[in-house]
């Protein structure tokens, strides 16, 4: 597992402490604390987990265990334009995997990763409730329906500038 090394600024540490304090530094509130931290930083780098560990007196190994258990938590920053491909049953049978492969190829990243320029990140999700449009791709808030592998280049072009 590759982790990104970052250095926290003093105000970042203060923010994490403030979040922990708002839950009375209660170890039982770990998930809520991580939730708020991710909301603030966009992701949960190792350094953030270490400060949470010190504040809540929960071993950092345990925190890492929680972060890697729940798919909601992420240790890599999301791109400016997060790309999500629906892999729910309907999308899957209509070729979502080929679409995902095309995004992988075009962006040069795997699911869960972010492009070096920080522009795009790639993730897969299960059913967005638009099965009639299968296969479905989300870029940020925008939905693309009936996506074929050949459409991928065009979709990415929308975000070029």
């Amino acid at each position: 597992m590759s982790t990104i090394k970052i250095e926290l600024r003093e105000q970042d540490v203060a923010k994490i402490r403030e979040i922990c304090a708002s839950f009375n530094n209660d170890p039982q509130e770990l998930i809520n604390v991580l939730h708020k931290c991710q909301q603030h930083f966009g992701y949960l780098p190792a350094e953030v987990q270490e400060v949470v560990s010190a504040e809540l007196t929960v071993p950092v190994a345990k925190i890492y265990g929680v972060v890697t258990f729940y798919s909601f938590f992420t240790m890599t920053p999301k791109g400016k334009y997060p790309v999500s491909i629906c892999m729910g049953t309907a999308c899957y049978v209509r070729g979502a995997e080929k679409v995902l492969d095309e995004f992988r190829k075009e962006l040069g990243i795997q699911v869960g990763e972010t492009t070096k320029d920080g522009k795009f990140s790639l993730s897969s999700l299960r059913c967005v409730g638009a099965c009639g449009l299968a296969p479905v791709v989300l870029v940020g808030e925008k939905t693309y329906g009936r996506v074929a592998p050949d459409d991928v280049k065009g979709i990415l072009k929308d975000y070029e500038q």
Partner: peptide, 26 residues
């Protein structure tokens, strides 16, 4: 590691086939 020794070096991480026991950040 956690309950008896309170060392906290090891924890269960990941899910499914990826699940294992490891130190923080592997």
């Amino acid at each position: 590691c956690n309950d008896v020794q309170t060392v906290g070096a090891l924890s269960a991480i990941n899910r499914g086939f990826m699940a294992t026991v490891a130190p923080a950040f592997e």
